[in-house]
Design a protein around this nucleic acid. Structure first.
Lengths: 226, 226
DNA sequence: CGTGTCATTGATATGGCTCAAGTTTTGTGG
DNA sequence: CCACAAAACTTGAGCCATATCAATGACACG
């Protein structure tokens, strides 16, 4: 496939347009992250739930998942963070979730206290942080609604969300495995797989490979979603 | 009962300690709301989903529910807002949900543009808004996790959340009806009722009246929750 | 070119929903 | 204060969507 000969960096840049759009950075504002970029291997942990929230992270390359583990062994993935996304911006004293790398990834970190001290001196930065946090809140509220839908609606919503950023390109590139998607949507991998197969059977999508889904009928997806 | 001879205002003030705790207002900061307090009757609407987000609200008395309606007639209640809580602080151009009064309520409103203009001049206010929004985000994230749990765990979590603020007083006062709680937890009223009855049968709680639940065994609740 | 991981598909079980009936509480008018 | 009606709640029976358990299939990687 074409994908397989592209570098990880190229793929990561493509993915940057998927999933989330951050509010434009106000002119003159940039959070320059004082810690050198750090790379994480697949499944390597950035931080754990309940640890003191020392840093805020920004994804540069790859995909980071944030999640909570239940004591019955299940897992809830709250978000897949892609290049440009911030992680743990809303934390107070402790991290409210774990974060680890879905694929080899690079992130930058900034000490929370330093960031907040800077923000205190810069209204524009302060406003930017508020915008990002409000956006994240709306995203979480949307996800709440998603979790009340049927299995099919959840999967379709997920596909639409992922595809939403780049309407021209119907090839959805999913860096994560089925178990991750299932843990994000609150479904088992079997149910997820069955829904995807059904959508393929209805000629709405094609499962080109594990990590690539092609959308054939966006209208049908929109009709099925919520 | 003692409750019944207390005024609505007194009850409302009691409830203010339930559900949510807002971050302390930084010294010298207060959002003085420029619109006179306005009262809403039971089920009266503050604003609808998709309307231009002109105002941010703060609850003074009563209980406001925020919700989304699905096209199949179901409803998702995102939050029960009690005295001290802000509503629609995270909105951008349009309201992302409806808001109406669970019981007769009083709120104050401020024009979003005015609030943001003031915040631009006041780092302390700006920081306060960021704190409130981050807190709301953590609340929404918690709710996501709740929606993945079993019916019993959801109900128990809800009871613990409601009871959490006032450990001394085991009487939980619920201003809303069963349908509201069901729509908040993603359960039908029948399932909710069955779980509550089971908990009562196990002598963990008592259903004193429709709007009052007594907790007998907090330890058992904590064991059942999550 | 085998071996382990990930994904799909099938068969069965089950938790919560739906439909339905009955009970309790609340509200209203006399 | 009572009678009645409407709304809210509880309980039961059966069903359905999704989970669970189990087997097979398809890659990716050494």
């Amino acid at each position: 496939m074409l994908d397989s000969i592209e570098s990880a960096q190229t793929l990561a840049r493509k993915r940057a347009r998927l999933f989330r759009v951050l509010p434009p950075i106000p002119a003159g504002i940039s959070i320059d992250f004082i810690i050198a970029p750090r790379s994480f291997a697949r499944n390597e942990e950035l931080f754990g739930e309940g640890e003191p929230a020392e840093f805020v992270y920004k994804v540069e390359v790859g995909c980071i998942r944030t999640y909570n583990s239940f004591n019955d062994g299940r897992r809830y993935i709250g978000a897949f963070c892609l290049p440009g996304d911030y992680i743990a911006l809303e934390a107070s004293r402790k991290y409210g979730y774990c974060a680890d790398a879905v694929v080899p990834s690079t992130v930058r970190a900034i000490n929370r206290n330093i960031l907040m001290a800077r923000a205190a001196k810069s209204p524009a930065l302060q406003k930017y942080l508020l915008n990002v946090t409000a956006l994240e809140l709306r995203r979480a509220q949307n996800h709440n609604r998603l979790l009340l839908m049927s299995a099919e609606e959840r999967v379709v919503s997920f596909l639409l969300e992922v595809a939403g950023r780049d309407r021209r390109l119907n090839n959805i590139d999913l860096p994560m495995v089925r178990q991750d998607i299932g843990d994000h949507l609150g479904l088992t991998i079997e149910t997820l797989s069955r829904v995807l197969s059904r959508l393929e059977g209805a000629s709405i999508i094609s499962l080109r490979s594990r990590h690539c889904i092609v959308i054939h009928d966006l209208g049908a997806l929109n009709r099925l979603g919520s």
